[in-house]
């Protein structure tokens, strides 16, 4: 199995203009992934599928991840003058990580029996620019899974042959797997003895009775 760094340099050489970045993974699994920009994703995907050494002809898993806006705080050691003496002080620096939605592709090779090579694509933001190119033309396996990502996360895939909701029903308005999804309180629930569901259901019925 060719190392991810070599795959990255090969792709940068063969697909001009592609911006690739390796996303680290600190857990014991060590599965690092390749972040690709949207404009060249289809070319990179074709290259990965057709390259004679890699032959990644099997897209095993296509999944979406929601990264909402988060405030990251990290402790930074900086030199600062404190009471006339220059010393190293630890300061907490807060950065705002912008929100985005992400699609992750796990690629394997059935011919060469190696893998996984993990590909990632990120949208610009979570509201109006949530579009990504569809890789269904490269691997047919992405067809239903990209539909599921659209259904549950709201990422629009450009070039997908049939982008409709797949798991939720057609009139459904929201995207359930997003981190800021609020469940409706008017679905029929079996009230359990201690659940806040019971309180919400009671509140809803009393609101309905009042109107």
């Amino acid at each position: 199995m060719i190392a991810l760094d070599r795959i990255k340099t090969q792709l940068e050489a063969t697909v001009p203009g592609a911006r690739l970045e390796i996303v680290p993974n600190d857990s014991p699994s060590g599965q690092r992934s390749l972040l690709v920009d949207c404009a060249h994703a289809a070319a990179v995907a074709e290259r990965l599928r057709d390259d004679p050494d890699l032959r990644l002809d099997y897209a095993s898993n296509v999944t979406g991840v929601d990264w909402p806006e988060a405030e990251l705080s990290e402790k930074v050691k900086i030199k600062r003058v404190v009471e006339g003496v220059e010393s190293e002080v630890e300061e907490i620096r807060k950065t705002l990580r912008p929100g985005c939605l992400e699609a992750v592709y796990h690629l394997y090779s059935m011919e060469k029996k190696h893998g996984p090579v993990i590909l990632r694509m990120r949208t610009e933001n979570r509201t109006d620019k949530a579009r990504l190119p569809s890789l269904t033309a490269v691997w047919r396996a992405c067809e239903f899974q990209e539909r599921e990502i659209y259904d549950l996360y709201g990422i629009l895939f450009d070039g997908h042959p049939d982008l409709r909701r797949i798991l939720m029903w057609d009139g459904f308005q929201d995207h359930p797997m997003r981190k800021d999804y609020v469940e409706p309180d008017d679905y029929e629930y079996e009230p359990t003895p201690h659940d806040e569901v019971l309180e919400r259901a009671k509140g809803h019925h009393s609101r309905e009775a009042a109107t």
Partner: peptide, 20 residues
């Protein structure tokens, strides 16, 4: 208390593509 679609449809500018 927030009902479903709390952020409101106006917050998300996407079109729901029509069924074939």
């Amino acid at each position: 208390p927030p009902a479903f679609g709390a952020a409101g449809p106006a917050a998300r500018h996407y079109e729901i593509l029509p069924k074939t």
